[in-house]
Amino acid sequence: MAELRTEEEQLEALKRWWKENGMALVAGVVLAAAGLIGWNAWQSYQANQAEAASIRYQQLIGLASQERLDEAGLAEAQRLVDEITDAHDGTLYADLSRLIEARLAVEAGDRVAARAVLGDLVQASEDAYVRDLARLRLARLQLADDEPAAAVATLEGELAEALGAQRAELIGDARLALGEVAAARRAYRDALSLAERHGQALYGVQLKLDDLGQEGADQ
């Protein structure tokens, strides 16, 4: 702006600029302010929602960590699970609550309900890892219900590598239930080597494997 020499000229230029651009500037400011306020309101709504979910979930955890739940406790837990899945669908809170719901159903002796919950999660959870966990647990219920073929089907397909050892053990259980001893032995061996590779410990796989005896010794 070296060409504007006097103060008078500068002031004049500023006024002109304001006349040309003032409205736009004000509009920009107003729009930004409105955006900010709206954003804050949205954020605080979200925060309130999240807090409500967090508090409910925390209560559920409190119940689930008790040694045994009585009727009232179970009902309360179920109410919390329902609230969380209804109001906060799509969050991890909802997923984890449903996993807990399945456990409570198992403990109440209701494997049908537990399978339904886990089946839902396998279908609908947005979280790949939760889906995989649910698959493993569903397969265990299927094995307990004497449906090894269904368990194998549940376990097939892509699954988080880190859960491979658990899957291999369950496949071993399923194969054994189907009478396929050699395949079961292979699966248990896989489970052991996968567990070692991932630095995990699995209780019982070695026992199950030992109980089958080595191949070659079958003569």
Binding site: I61, A64, L92, L96, S97, A102, R103, V106, L133
Partner: peptide, 12 residues
């Protein structure tokens, strides 16, 4: 901790 609790307490 909430995450861990959910994973641990849901096992059966």
């Amino acid at each position: 901790e909430q995450l861990q609790n959910g994973l641990i307490l849901s096992d059966f």
